[in-house]
Design a protein around this nucleic acid. Structure first.
Lengths: 369, 369
DNA sequence: ACAGTATGAACGGACACTTGA
DNA sequence: CTCAAGTGTCCGTTCATACTG
C-alpha cells in the first residue's frame, strides 16, 4: 500500500495533469473535487447530478481535454459503438459511395466504422475477416456486395447483427437493396419503347447478385414484350471488360440496342462501337446503370439508371442499429427506388427510318457465336 | 465470496461453455485445465509454454471458438491495433483507392482500420472527427487529402502518430506523396514537345494541395520553356465542373492544348470541345491526371498521368507503423513516382500543318475574361 | 425519507513477480 | 539455477449498493 506508481498524484492543488498519457476519469474527479463516479454520471449525461457540480466537472473535463477511454468503456458495457463494414473492392464506385454514406450515418448516431476490404473472394479470407476482426470489436456488421454469401460454406457468426447491402439472396439477414429489377426493367422497356426489336445485354460478373438481378429483370421485360432474348455477354464491371465484350456486340449488325449492367461497361462498349464506325445512338442505342457522376460527360452523354447509394448506406445503418437495439426484423428487405435518367445515348433504331440497306451476315466481323 | 454471478461455472466436467456471450480466457483455461495466465501466454505466442500444454490450450481455444476480447486487451496494453483514416469524400476515386490499399496493408500487419468521412470542411467537424473518434481508440492516424490542414486553427493532437497522404505542406508530419510535380511537368512538357506554343491548365480546387502542386509544376514547366503562362481555370475535380470550365476554354481558338488536373475534368472538357465542334486531338490536345481505370475508353482514349494510389496506401501504413513503433522520422516525405500514359488525346497542333484559316477573336463565344 | 455522492466489485487480459520442479 | 506454470493487482469505466447531509 505504497503510493500507486502509475496514477499521477495531484493531491496538492489544482495543477492540470498534462503528462503524455491522456487524463482519466479520476484526474477529472480530482480537479473538479468530486468522485470519479460523478464524473462518469456527467460523461453519460445522467440525471442525478447537481447543476453546479455538473458544470464544475464539465469544465474540468474541458481543461484536461478528457476523453473517456473507449476500450475501458467497451469492456465495462460490452458495447463498442462501432460497426464493421466488409466489402470487396472499396474502389468500386458504388461501394465507395455506400461506404461514405454509412460512415456519415454512423457518425450521426455516435458510432464509428471499422472497414475491412476483402481482397480475394476466397471463402477463407472473408470468414477470417469476419470473425477475426469484425466479430470482436464491433456491435454489428454491414456486408456490401455479397457475392460473398454465395458460398454456402460461409456461415456468418450468429449473434452478431448483420445487414446485407445489395446482395442477399436468402432471407437470413435483413438487407437493403437498390431496386435493381425496377431499374433494369425501365431500361429495357425504354429501349423497346423506342422501337428496337430487342435489347442485348452486357451483364456484370456471374457471381454478382446485382448483376444477376439486372439480367433477370432484363430477360423478364423482354419476354413480357414478346421480344427475342439474345445471348448475354459478361464483363467484370470494368470499362475494359465492357470494351472487350463490346467488340463482339459491335460486330453484329443486328444489334441496335444494348443495356449495359453499369456505366463503365457502357463506356467500354461505346468505345468498341466507335472503333468499328457505328455511331451512338444513330446506329446503336446504349443504356447504362449507376449514373456515375461523369456519365453526363460521356460521348454521347449516357442514358442510364440512377442509383441512390447514399440512401442505401443510410438505411443499412438504420437497420443495423435497430437490430443492435433488439428490434430486429429477421428477413426485412428495404428497397430503394431507382429512376431512369434520359440523356443522349438512346434513339429509335435507324431501321425505323430507312432499312433495306442492311447488309447480310457477311458483314459480321467477329465470330458468329 | 459467494459464487461469482457472471462467470459460468464449469467446475464439473469438460462441458464446452456455449452460452450466448463469447468465451473468455478463463473458459479456455478451465477447459484446458490450466491457469488463465497460460492461456494468455499461448494467445500471445510466448516462448515459455510446454508444447503439450500449448497444444491442449490451442485445441480448447478452437473448440470454444475463443477470440481474445480486443477491448480488454486494449485496456491492458494501451494499444488498440487499429489505425484511423480521416478523409473527405471517400467516393472520390483516388481516395477510395488509397483507402482500399490502406485497409489491405493494415490487415497484413494485424491492424484494423477505422474510417471517418469528414463531410464538410468546416474546421470544427474535422477537429471533432479527429479528437473525438480517432484520437481515442486508435494507435495512429492517416489523413487523406489534407486541405484539412490548410486552416491553421486545426491543431492536430500531439502524441498521436499521424501520416499525411497527398496533402501536407509543412513538415510537421511524415507524409506520402505522389510526385505531383513530376507528373504535371511531364504532362506539360509532352504537350510542349508536340509543338504547342503553350499549354492551358484546368486546375483542381484552390484549397487542394494536390491541385496547387500540379498547377505550380505546370507553370514552372511553361516558364522553363519560355512559353506564355495562360490564366488558369478552376474546377472541383468533377466532370461537370470540367465541362463548365471547359466551355470557356473551348471557345477560345488560341487554345490548342490543355492539361486537366484530373481525368474526370478532362472528360468534361472534351465534352465541351465536342459541343463546339472542335475535335480532340486534331484541334485541341487534352491530357489528364490520375489514369482512372476507364480513361482508356474515353472518346478519344485519354493520355494521362498514372498515379499509384496503392503504393501511397501501403507506404502510409508502413510509415505510420514505424511512427507507432517509435522509430519516427519527423518530416519524412515519401514520394511515389508517376508516369505518363500515352493514348490518343494528344497530337501536334493543327497549325503545325495548316494555319491561316484561324478566324479572329470574333469567333470566341464565351466571355473573354 | 430524500437528494446526491462515495464505494467496491466486475469487465477480460497482460504483465511483473513468485513458486514448483 | 533454469524453465514451466500460477498468483495477484491494474488498465479505466460502469453499475449496484451503501452512505452522507
Amino acid at each position: 500500500m505504497f503510493a500507486r506508481p502509475q496514477v499521477s498524484v495531484v493531491k496538492g492543488g489544482l495543477v492540470p495533469v498534462s503528462e503524455g498519457s491522456s487524463p482519466t476519469q479520476a484526474d477529472v474527479a480530482t480537479l473538479a473535487g468530486v468522485s470519479s463516479q460523478t464524473v462518469s454520471r456527467v460523461a453519460n449525461s445522467r440525471t442525478n447530478v447537481d447543476e453546479a457540480t455538473r458544470g464544475r466537472v464539465l469544465s474540468a473535463m474541458r481543461q484536461l481535454g478528457y476523453r473517456p477511454n473507449t476500450a475501458a468503456r467497451a469492456l465495462a458495457t460490452g458495447k463498442f459503438r462501432m460497426i464493421g463494414v466488409i466489402s470487396f473492392a472499396l474502389n468500386a464506385h458504388g461501394n465507395a459511395r455506400t461506404l461514405q454514406a454509412i460512415s456519415s450515418a454512423a457518425q450521426d448516431s455516435g458510432y464509428s466504422v471499422n472497414v475491412i476490404a476483402v481482397r480475394a473472394s476466397t471463402g477463407g479470407a472473408v470468414r477470417e475477416a469476419f470473425s477475426a476482426l469484425a466479430a470482436q470489436a464491433v456491435d454489428g456488421i454491414v456486408l456490401i456486395e455479397a457475392q460473398i454469401l454465395d458460398r454456402p460454406d460461409l456461415d456468418l457468426p450468429h449473434g452478431v447483427p448483420v445487414v446485407i447491402a445489395d446482395g442477399d439472396l436468402d432471407q437470413r439477414f435483413p438487407s437493403v437493396d437498390n431496386n435493381q429489377a425496377l431499374g433494369a426493367r425501365a431500361a429495357t422497356e425504354h429501349l423497346l419503347g423506342l422501337g428496337h426489336e430487342t435489347v442485348w445485354h452486357l451483364a456484370g460478373p456471374e457471381d454478382s447478385y446485382s448483376a444477376r438481378r439486372r439480367a433477370d429483370a432484363w430477360r423478364a421485360a423482354l419476354t413480357a414484350a414478346d421480344a427475342q432474348v439474345p445471348p448475354v455477354s459478361h464483363g467484370d464491371w470494368s470499362a475494359q471488360s465492357g470494351y472487350e465484350a463490346g467488340r463482339s456486340l459491335a460486330a453484329r449488325q443486328e444489334v441496335t440496342a444494348v443495356f449495359a449492367a453499369n456505366d463503365h461497361m457502357a463506356l467500354g462498349l461505346m468505345r468498341a462501337l466507335v472503333e468499328v464506325g457505328r455511331v451512338v445512338p444513330r446506329d446503336v442505342s446504349v443504356i447504362g446503370f449507376d449514373d456515375v457522376a461523369e456519365s453526363g460527360c460521356f460521348q454521347p452523354p449516357l442514358t442510364t439508371v440512377h442509383q441512390d447509394f447514399e440512401e442505401v448506406g443510410r438505411r443499412c445503418v438504420a437497420l443495423l442499429l435497430d437490430e443492435i437495439a433488439g428490434c430486429a426484423a429477421p428477413g426485412a428487405v428495404s428497397t430503394i427506388p431507382m429512376r431512369l435518367v434520359l440523356r443522349s445515348s438512346t434513339a429509335p433504331p435507324r431501321s425505323a427510318a430507312a432499312d433495306g440497306a442492311c447488309s447480310g451476315p457477311g458483314d459480321v466481323r467477329a465470330g458468329a457465336g
